[in-house]
Computed example of a mutant assay.
Amino acid sequence: MASWSNQRALWTYRYHKYIHIIGKYRSVVWKYLYLRWLKYKAADRPLVAIVLSEQMGDIIACEPVAREVRQRHPNAYIIWLVRKQYVELVEHHPDLDGYLIEKCPSERIYLLRTGIFDKVYNMHISHRKCKYCPEDPVNPTADQIGLTFDNYYHRGDLLYMFSQAAGLPAMTADPKMYIPESIRQRVAALRLQESPIVIHCQSSHIMRDWPAENWNRLVKWLLDTYPYPVIEIGLQPVVTEEHPNFRNLCGQLSLLETAEVIRNAHLFIGIDSGPAHMANANGANGIILLGQLFDFVDYLPYSGRYKRGEGITILNNYGHPCSELPYGWVQDAALQRLGQPKLV
């Protein structure tokens, strides 16, 4: 029985692998033809690519690269290569002429090899491979400065590191998010209570998370102590509190809708994740919970306001994972940010 189960899993994997690879080659041809058409349409304008296809926090943190590239190439046709799930983060940027959806890193290799782009700013570190494709993506600029997955957080924040991987000077600018009026109207239609405390409790990596019991305890204390409503955002809910001033929006918002909710927050409290970068880019005051991540102990992913310590409290019990961050530290930070509660 176990042997049949293993064989089934193997053939299922092979099926998805070969379907993916066939689709990749078709996609390369189609996108090459599309880029040729773009070059024809753009006439004498050079075609410039910015490459950072994932993750959410990385793309938000590195938004200033688009502004820098526009300054360097004022007349260029500039596009951002991005994975489908993150298109929202770049499609409204005023310094970009468009975006190109990347199917996988291997597809990117073939597109870059065609020489269709007049200039490429590749922010990816080498050797982040597709799970199905044999090609190994390499960024010679990142390799030249010795930037690897083992040391990148020792070098500085995400923008500082990845801008150098792209061959740009080390950047420290404040990231921005561009939220269209249509998104703001959609969030307004949710009729959320004003000045909420917005929390984000669960990241894509368990090493970044804080225990669910601590989040529930914190939310109960916030609701019992302050008049501010509490909103949980993210993909999966962690908080189980039932209260008229608590609202769970997990799994109900797009990326830019999430950013708009955070923009309107009185305070953001969260772990190291994409929404924390949204808070930084949208000017929200925040409390960020950090902890040891692999071999990275003393690290800070954020540039701009949060790096300067403006409107932010960073909590890190150095040498311990985020899960071991004392509850009292977070409650004390909230007291400092929200002020002493008024006695009734």
Rank of each mutant, 00 (worst) to 15 (best):
S5K: 11
N6T: 12
R8D: 06
A9H: 12
Y13W: 15
Y13T: 03
K17W: 07
K24L: 14
W30M: 10
Y34T: 12
Y34M: 12
R36S: 08
L38S: 09
K41E: 11
A42L: 05
D44G: 07
L47S: 02
L47C: 04
V48G: 09
L52S: 02
I60Y: 04
A61S: 14
P64I: 04
E68D: 12
R70G: 11
H73M: 11
P74D: 07
N75Y: 13
N75K: 15
N75P: 04
Y77I: 01
I79Q: 03
W80A: 01
R83Y: 08
V87W: 00
D95N: 14
D97M: 03
Y99Q: 04
K103N: 00
P105M: 01
P105R: 08
R108Y: 00
Y110C: 03
R113D: 11
T114M: 10
G115K: 10
G115V: 07
V120N: 12
Y121N: 12
N122T: 09
S126L: 07
S126E: 06
C130P: 02
K131F: 02
D136I: 14
P137R: 01
T141I: 15
D143N: 15
I145M: 13
G146H: 11
G146E: 09
F149T: 08
F149P: 03
D150A: 11
N151T: 01
L158F: 12
M161T: 10
S163A: 08
S163M: 02
A165S: 12
P169S: 08
K176R: 15
Y178V: 08
Q185H: 13
V187W: 08
R191S: 09
R191W: 08
L192R: 00
L192M: 05
I199Y: 06
S204A: 15
S204M: 07
H205M: 13
I206F: 13
M207T: 12
D209M: 03
L218M: 15
L218N: 00
V219C: 07
K220I: 06
L222P: 04
L222V: 13
L222Q: 06
D224Q: 15
E232G: 03
I233Y: 05
P237S: 07
N245Y: 14
R247N: 00
G251L: 01
Q252N: 03
E260H: 08
R263T: 03
H266V: 09
L267T: 04
G270Q: 03
D272Q: 11
A276C: 06
H277M: 06
A284T: 15
I287R: 06
G291F: 04
Q292T: 15
Y299C: 07
Y302Q: 01
G311S: 05
T313S: 11
I314T: 07
L315G: 03
Y318Q: 14
G319Q: 12
C322S: 14
E324T: 13
Q331H: 10
L335P: 01
R337V: 05
G339D: 04
G339L: 00
G339K: 00
V344W: 09
